[in-house]
Design a protein around this nucleic acid. Structure first.
Lengths: 136, 136
DNA sequence: TTAGTTGCAAAGGCTTTGCACGCGC
DNA sequence: GCGCGTGCAAAGCCTTTGCAACTAA
């Protein structure tokens, strides 16, 4: 069983074949699938799985903090299983490819107090945009 | 006539009362309206304006580079008229309020070559998240 | 056993589209 | 007058919801 499933079971997550398949499909680096893509691939492993269950499961994984929602490409949300290692995204403006990247600076520290409007600022998400080798 | 309308007319943009009203509604700093909110406010000034026209006009303003799409809050896209002055966004996780902010660092320079996967990287968008004074 | 999960189908929110009419240039 | 812009209504995409049947623990 994957680390992810281990952790979830430890948190009292009821383990069904549908959930197992969704977790399996989301495994890996640089994975940023839409709900529909997850459903398509999951259905390859478990043909009866329904879209509603995929949406339910993705929503739970997000609520549990195990998966991140990425809204930076196209209309549909994308799901990023790499929630445990902080990272940012590099998006190709041509084909929409997304890579996980790790910048070296401190974006939070770069926001002066005078620019915070009294907010308690907790995090910073960065989306880099450019062209991938194939599109350039 | 506003600077925006001046510029657009110079680029051969046909000036209708609907377009004028949409541009008027979008004027100002820290403005991040959804298409529906734009339609609502525009209809306050020009009751017959249709949603389709609002969508058409917003799409054109984005294509012309005069307005930015912001997809970082909620389900509907938001439109940011402040496209001529580079800036980033600070979003309240409680109520969804958005402020324009200006960090001091160089996010682009913070992305090492080894993290660029051969991409030609052109820009970086940063979304800061936190709680506004009212929600904290 | 039993509370939580699934699948279906329908509804819902946001956006786009096709086409006839209208209006800026 | 010409050609682009507008409004309407319908369709489309993505997502959520209600509910009865099912199943992991």
């Amino acid at each position: 069983m994957s680390d992810l499933l281990q952790r979830l079971r430890g948190r009292g997550w009821r383990l069904t074949s549908q959930r197992r398949v969704v977790a399996e499909v989301l495994d890996g680096d640089h994975v940023h699938l839409t709900a529909d893509e997850v459903h398509l691939r999951a259905a390859g492993l478990l043909p009866e799985i329904s879209r509603a269950t995929v949406y339910n499961t993705l929503g739970e994984l997000v609520a549990l903090g195990e998966v991140l929602e990425v809204s930076t490409v196209g209309r549909a949300k994308r799901y990023d299983p790499n929630a445990r290692r902080p990272h940012q995204h590099l998006v190709c403006s041509g084909c929409g490819t997304v890579r996980d990247v790790h910048p070296v600076g401190d974006a939070l520290g770069d926001l002066p107090d005078t620019e915070r409007y009294g907010f308690t600022v907790g995090s910073a998400e960065i989306t880099y945009r450019g062209l991938c080798p194939a599109c350039a």
